[in-house]
Design a protein around this nucleic acid. Structure first.
Lengths: 247, 247
DNA sequence: GTTTCCACTTGATCTCGGTCAAAGCATCTA
DNA sequence: TAGATGCTTTGACCGAGATCAAGTGGAAAC
């Protein structure tokens, strides 16, 4: 955080992660050798990146696309436990095996670092370790907020919560202002939404139809969403609306 | 972890957290000044330690008793998002305000550190920062496992999951062997269990009665639980049973 | 052009868990 | 001894969401 700000980021170019995650471009200002442990990987929608229990020999950030973390029970019931949007980090420094499946929900590009050199880097570079701790604490907060969604919200509130999260993240990347309608494409199938929300895909479909009927959202096609009034959506989600929607 | 093992812990005495958390006794071997930023605090059952949004000027570990992390919606619905058993750590180094209420569920003793000196300690002492990252990653795993419970398990499975978590933690402290029946006292009211499981207290009560009827558990009084067959309980919880129950 | 997919929608019915209500039971107080 | 009080149990009923099933619509494949 502090150490980042003194560097010039005009060359960061395609790296969207520079202010959230450990960024190759930014850190190469002070760490020439980082560039060589960094590489990009592409995945197709639906592809599994890591199976639960597998060795995980890299860490990385999402550059574009969406990845999901999923837990599965023996009888096949699944629950998505995390959604990785661009700039989100995945990896367990100090751990060997993944505790859940990681899948590409859409076509996906990740910026990866081999794990061992990254761990070395972390112990050599305290500010990277510090940023990683902050990011992990953020993820923990997000996971706990989602526990409230899963445990206590109605189906309608769950859908509204998911839409508001996606809208928020999308808006913070694509638009700067926080007034007026928000427009985005849903990056998830109804089934993926159901997996994330602890619902069935039929219920997801019904509730989206209901929100459309009640003019909380507008749909063009199945995926293109317009939110005319973000405050209204957040009320539907059961969140308090003060403080605006940009986190 | 590595750095701990070379010290003698025979004087750790009443500090149950020495191998899991940041331990005052252990770290004073190398850090004479730690002792002076450490202090103990006691709370009564039901007392709120921190309100959501409050300034949080300390971090610490649970020495005895149980604390809970709870999120609340405007209309009063609540969801417990974390359960802190002895040796668990609470605190957000680098953050000022708490994102949820912290409450003493039973009478509680905590080992606290003032936040600022602790943060200083962290940046001076890489291995403490490293341990804290590992602990946070563990918490994140636990939170995500709980998302599966909240999102996909039935009421009966939820109760069995909670019992198995408490039994596991209790057993790892009180007994060394992992065979034979497990006996413990439920440290939570039916209402607290319901808050943790995303259920109502009536459903909790009914499902506990059902597990008793089906001889998965035995109850003496309302709180004293015997688990004759841990494998059976884990089946009821929908977890895979291989690997034993001691994590 | 039509067939085949696949993601999605909608309807009918069922069920698990929530809601409302009453009562049991142990501990504390007067 | 009799209330209180707080935690728990149990019953009756209801409804949100699951399940089962049929149908829609658009894009790719033949």
């Amino acid at each position: 955080m502090t150490s980042i700000s003194k560097f010039d980021h005009t060359n960061c170019g395609d790296c969207p992660i520079r202010h959230r995650a450990v960024c190759a471009h930014c850190d190469t200002d002070e760490l020439e050798d980082l560039e060589e442990i960094k590489y990009y990987r592409s995945f197709e929608a639906g592809q599994t990146i890591i199976w639960s229990g597998d060795q995980m020999n890299f860490v990385g950030s999402v550059v574009s696309g969406i990845a999901s973390l999923t837990q599965t029970m023996e009888d096949g019931r699944t629950q998505m436990v995390g959604l990785l949007l661009p700039s989100d980090f995945v990896g367990r420094p100090g751990r060997d095996s993944a505790p859940y499946d990681v899948q590409a929900t859409t076509d996906l590009v990740m910026c990866c670092f081999r794990k061992k050199p990254f761990e070395q880097l972390m112990s050599d570079t305290p500010h990277i370790a510090h940023r990683l701790l902050q990011m992990t604490l953020d993820e923990l907060d997000a996971a706990r907020e989602w526990m409230l969604v899963l445990g206590r919200k109605t189906a309608r509130e769950k859908i509204a919560s998911l839409l508001s999260i996606i809208a928020r993240r999308d808006a913070s990347i694509n638009q700067k202002g926080n007034t007026g309608p928000i427009v985005f494409d849903l990056p998830l199938t109804r089934e993926a939404m159901a997996d994330y929300l602890g619902l069935t895909l039929e219920t997801v479909s019904r509730q989206i139809s209901a929100l459309k009927r009640d003019q909380v959202i507008t749909l063009e096609g199945k995926r293109h969403v317009t939110i005319p009034d973000m405050g209204r959506l957040m009320e539907e989600a059961g969140d308090d609306t003060d403080g605006g929607f940009l986190v």
